[in-house]
């Protein structure tokens, strides 16, 4: 095939990417330096938005909480996903295609539907409370579940587990079966084989599982809004607020990009730590 034909074939997708991916992200970056005059973004370039994002006590609280929740969720997701993938691939391989398929399909099991379901399950008038009341176990609805950080974490872990399982499981498909068996033939226990052979060889998958969960949580706003209390809102809620009622798009853009910088820095750090630990 001549290169000119290839260029022609690449052109539509490339143009589409530039127009609807690169330019929007570029605009986001540019807007983060804009000023606001009477609720309208104006092209007067300033660093004020970043200064506010970095120095405001309010935002610092949101950033710290977001990073803490993201770290918790990513750790739990990875810790649940690795044994799941391991069991599926090594201990119970007979059913692995069916179960893998279920996990894959549940990945598409409705983002907003899940949040709604948890609200339903944990809310004042939710399934848990209504059932407890109906059975006479409690005489007033328990308000402990909904509007708490716990609810946010449970819902996010629930939503992200498939994203954790899939990369680890995929990485396990590339581990030579012989190496695992060799470790056992040499007298290693199952756990030793898992720790010394499978874990290092699937570390990329584990890192992917951790990173995906961490990034997804760091920009989350629907889950905390619908399941968290006022004290459990994340930086994503602040960003969304600036684009909604807050009407300060440049500040919202700066808040979002500051979050990206924080996430990239922390993931880099986490990656270094995990690699050390796995060695």
């Amino acid at each position: 095939m001549r290169p000119s034909v290839r260029t022609l074939q690449m052109a539509p997708a490339t143009l589409y990417y530039v127009a609807l991916f690169l330019i929007p992200l570029l605009m986001l970056a540019v807007y983060s330096f804009y000023s606001v005059e009477s609720f309208e973004p104006v092209p007067k370039l300033t660093l004020d938005n970043y200064v506010e994002a970095a120095t405001s006590d309010v935002f610092r609280g949101f950033y710290l909480r977001t990073l803490r929740v993201a770290l918790t969720v990513a750790l739990i997701v990875t810790l649940i996903s690795f044994p799941f993938a391991f069991v599926l691939n090594y201990v119970l391989p007979a059913r692995k295609h069916v179960v893998y398929f279920m996990v894959l399909v549940s990945l598409f099991g409705g983002y907003i539907v899940r949040v709604y379901a948890w609200r339903n399950i944990m809310g004042r008038e939710g399934v848990v409370n209504q059932t407890l009341l109906g059975l006479g176990v409690v005489d007033r609805p328990v308000t402990l579940f909904l509007n708490s950080e716990l609810a946010v974490i449970v819902a996010l872990v629930n939503y992200l587990i498939p994203f954790g399982i899939l990369p680890i499981y995929a990485a396990m498909q590339n581990v030579p079966v012989g190496q695992v068996e060799a470790a056992q033939d040499l007298g290693g226990s199952r756990w030793l084989a898992a720790r010394r052979v499978v874990l290092p060889l699937t570390s990329q998958g584990c890192v992917a599982a951790f990173a995906i969960s961490f990034i997804a949580t760091s920009a989350e706003w629907v889950t905390p809004q619908l399941l968290g209390g006022t004290g459990d809102q994340l930086i994503g809620n602040q960003i969304q607020h600036q684009f909604g009622g807050g009407l300060n798009w440049p500040l919202g853009a700066a808040l979002a990009l500051t979050m990206v910088v924080l996430v990239v820095a922390l993931l880099g750090l986490a990656y270094a730590v995990i690699r050390r630990w796995l060695r």
Binding site: L92, S106, N120, I121
Partner: peptide, 24 residues
């Protein structure tokens, strides 16, 4: 026994994954 434990783990995680959807 490990197989039984492993199976219980898989079922528990899958149940957690699908619980909210089943409720809806």
């Amino acid at each position: 026994s490990t197989r039984a434990l492993a199976r219980a783990y898989l079922i528990a995680v899958l149940a957690f994954l699908f619980a909210p959807l089943v409720v809806v």
